[in-house]
Computed example of a mutant assay.
Amino acid sequence: MPRFAANLSMMFTEHDFLDRFQAAADAGFEAVEYLFPYDFPAEVVAEKLTNAGLSQALFNMPAGDWSKGERGLAALPERRDEFREAVAKAVHYATIIGTPLLHMMSGLADPRDPAAAASYRYALSFAAEKTAEKGIGLVIEPINGRDMPGYFLNDFNSAVALIDEFGPRNVKLQYDIYHRQIIHGDVLTSLGQMMQVIAHIQIASVPLRHEPGTGELNDAMIFAEIDRLGYGGYVGCEYRPLGDTVAGLTWLNKT
C-alpha cells in the first residue's frame, strides 16, 4: 500500500490551518503537504509538524497573488526579480520546515510564446540550482486547463521533455493522477513510462476531485500499480472531501 500524505489545503478544513497538522496525525496520516505555508512563520509551521509527529512531503514556492488568480511566476519574464525572491523565500522555509521537495508553479502563459518558454527554462535552471544547494528536490506539475485555464505547463510529455533536458539536475515530475486523467488519460501505462522521473504522486477522484473511489478511475488498481512499480515516495491526497474529512476516510481503511 502506498504511503499517503494529507493535503492540508483541501483536507481537515473543519479546523484552522495550524490545527490541521494534529488532526491529520489523529486520523492516521504520517505526512502532510499543502499549497503554501507563508502566512505563518516557518518556525511555527515546523513546530506544528514536529509536535504532531508528521513528515513534510512538499509545498509550493510562492506563486504571486493567489487571491487575484495568479498561479506562478516562472513563465512570466516581466516578473523575474519577484521569481528569484520567491525561490529564496521557499528555500528558507523548506530548510526550516524540513521538506524534501518544492513545487515550482509555472504561471498563466501561452506555452507557444517564445518569451514565456525562455522565461520558464531560466526559472527552472535558477530554481534547480538554488534548491540543489540545500539538498532539496524540485518538482514540476502539469495542470489541466479545465481547473486552471491558461496554465503554461499543461502537458505531461512536455514536462518529461523538460526534465530530460535538465538531465542530472534535481528536477523531477509531480505526477497528479487527477490532472493526468483529464489531460491525457492512460494513467497506468504512463505511470510505468514515467516512474523514473516521478518524485511525488497526488490522487483525487475524477471528475469531481473528491475522495478516491468516488469517480471513474479504479483507484485500488492504481495504488496496486504504484506499489508494483516500486514507488517509495508519498501519495498526496489532494482532494476535496465530500463532507467531513474524517468521515470520508473509509477509502483509506480499505487500501
Rank of each mutant, 00 (worst) to 15 (best):
M1A: 05
P2W: 07
F4H: 07
A6I: 13
L8W: 11
S9Y: 04
M11Y: 04
M11R: 15
E14H: 06
D16N: 11
D19F: 07
F21I: 07
F21D: 12
Q22V: 07
A25Q: 06
D26K: 10
A27Q: 15
F29M: 05
E33I: 10
Y34T: 15
L35R: 14
L35E: 08
F36M: 05
P41M: 04
A42K: 03
E47T: 11
T50Y: 07
N51Y: 10
A52I: 08
L54H: 15
S55I: 08
A57Y: 09
G64H: 03
E70I: 00
E70D: 06
A74N: 02
R80K: 15
D81H: 12
R84I: 08
V87N: 03
V87C: 09
A90C: 02
Y93L: 10
A94K: 02
T95R: 12
T95W: 10
G98Q: 06
M104A: 14
M104Y: 01
S106Q: 03
P111R: 02
Y120T: 01
R121A: 04
L124D: 04
E129A: 06
E133A: 15
E133R: 01
G135T: 15
E141P: 09
I143V: 11
N144C: 15
G145M: 09
R146S: 09
R146F: 09
M148C: 04
N154V: 06
F156T: 14
S158K: 01
A159M: 05
A159W: 05
A161S: 14
G167W: 03
R169T: 06
N170I: 13
Q174L: 08
R180S: 11
Q181C: 10
Q181M: 05
H184I: 02
G185V: 10
D186G: 00
V187K: 00
T189G: 09
T189V: 11
M195H: 06
I198Y: 13
A199P: 04
L208G: 15
P212H: 02
E216T: 11
A220P: 08
A224H: 12
I226M: 08
G230L: 06
G230D: 12
G233Q: 11
V235M: 13
R240D: 09
R240W: 06
R240P: 06
A247L: 14
N253Q: 11
N253S: 14
